[in-house]
């Protein structure tokens, strides 16, 4: 069970969290302006990272906030967590 540093509550056990998929995929401002292909890419295409991955988590059984996390998928090492809306930090 991972120990996840919530940006609001500090380190908390994974049981309190829910994974939310890849981070930094913004919903297009004007979906109607997108081609079918572009829209499909937004909907369905995600990275399958070996190494440092930026992903969304929600502290659903805690402060209930969504936030982002850099995690190494090969070791489960968490490099950092940061609030939604902040840019992806340089990999530590």
């Amino acid at each position: 069970m991972l120990l996840i540093p919530c940006p609001f509550c500090g380190p908390r056990p994974e049981l309190e969290f829910r994974y939310g998929g890849q981070a930094h995929i913004a919903r297009p401002e004007n979906p109607a302006a997108l081609s079918d292909g572009e829209w499909a890419e937004f909907l369905y295409l995600r990275d399958n990272v070996r190494g440092v991955h930026a992903e969304r988590w929600r502290h659903i059984h805690g402060c209930a906030r969504f936030f982002n996390m850099l995690r190494d998928t090969t070791t489960d090492r968490i490099l950092t967590t940061y609030k939604t809306g902040e840019p992806r930090p340089e990999a530590v």
Partner: peptide, 13 residues
């Protein structure tokens, strides 16, 4: 509720 919070927190803050 989770989906509503998701949009509210991450897209339409």
């Amino acid at each position: 509720l989770n989906m509503m919070e998701d949009y509210l927190q991450t897209e339409w803050a």
